[in-house]
Amino acid sequence: MIPAGQRLLRLGGCSLLWRPRTLAVGAVLLVVAGALALALLGMGTIRLTPDRVLAGLMGSEDDGMATRIVRLLRLPRLLTAAIVGASLGAAGAAFQSISRNALGSPDVIGFTTGAATGAITGIVLFQTGPTETALAAVGAGLLTAFTVLALARQRGAGGGYRLILIGIGCGAVLTGVNTMLMVKGGIDQAMAAQIWLAGSLTGRSWSHVGPAFVAMLLLLPVLVVNARRLALLEMGTDIATGLGIHVGRTRMVAVLAAVGLTSVATASTGPIAFIALAGPQIARRLTRAPEVPILTGALTGAVLLLAADLLGQVAPFRLTLPIGLTTGLLGGLYLMVVLLQRDR
């Protein structure tokens, strides 16, 4: 029997359930992302018309300036934004499913701050370059994740909320540690760390795109493959076990993949709030599907981050809007809207 709203696709021995509405939403999101990308590639100190952007992308010989601007400056920034947004969106979907809570995003749980601690330790104490900084962020993000999970695992009340409260506590401590590290470091490193902490897409080069892309390529499929198992896990440990799911392993694999995605994303741009929190929720509302929105969440995350970047570039009154702060502002408001909606 095929569930309502879904179609079945058979290819030899393989079969795939798909949902027309989800596919349509995905297509629309892709188109929106494409339009935003075109706008972002054209904007900046030197404005480029869409046809010059395309010429630059193709690497045409006649328009050397457009080629250089697009390929060396704007394309890496754009790709970093898109990949980071997608990673955060997918990771957020996994976290929310595991914690069975719409607010269980990596920023609220404190993982993002942990990754930041690793990166700042690298920058301030060891003067690391981008790659080592990224590795330090991944390690520290994983460590924070395990600490929070282990602390939340004891008996006692709070349920899925315990994880969030422990995460808030750990996040607060690590924020303090981050500030301490920045005071401890020399003024140059402190400046670099401060800029990094605000979350920024400025000056991203191909060396930022590489690690984030590889991480997404490796970890996103892991989440996609596990999405159906995660959806069953949401029904409760007992039912999922009864349905033949290895609960502990599924949860561990999903957490590891999600933490990896978040850490690498944080390493490339600095902490960016809100995307992992809101991306999956918006995707779920758009598709109206009961599944864990890994892919749609990733697409929504990419669109959100590109839109935030565009907002920062067209901000009125020459306001300085670092992308991490913009998304933080929106994310907190979104959190409160979620709370208000629960009243109904």
Binding site: I168, A198, G331, G332
Partner: peptide, 25 residues
Amino acid sequence: PVRLLLAGAGLSIVLGAAVSLVILN
């Protein structure tokens, strides 16, 4: 009890980001 904490955390995130933005600008 958790709801109050979450409302506070959300408000703190918004206000913290807003303070940073004002100081920056």
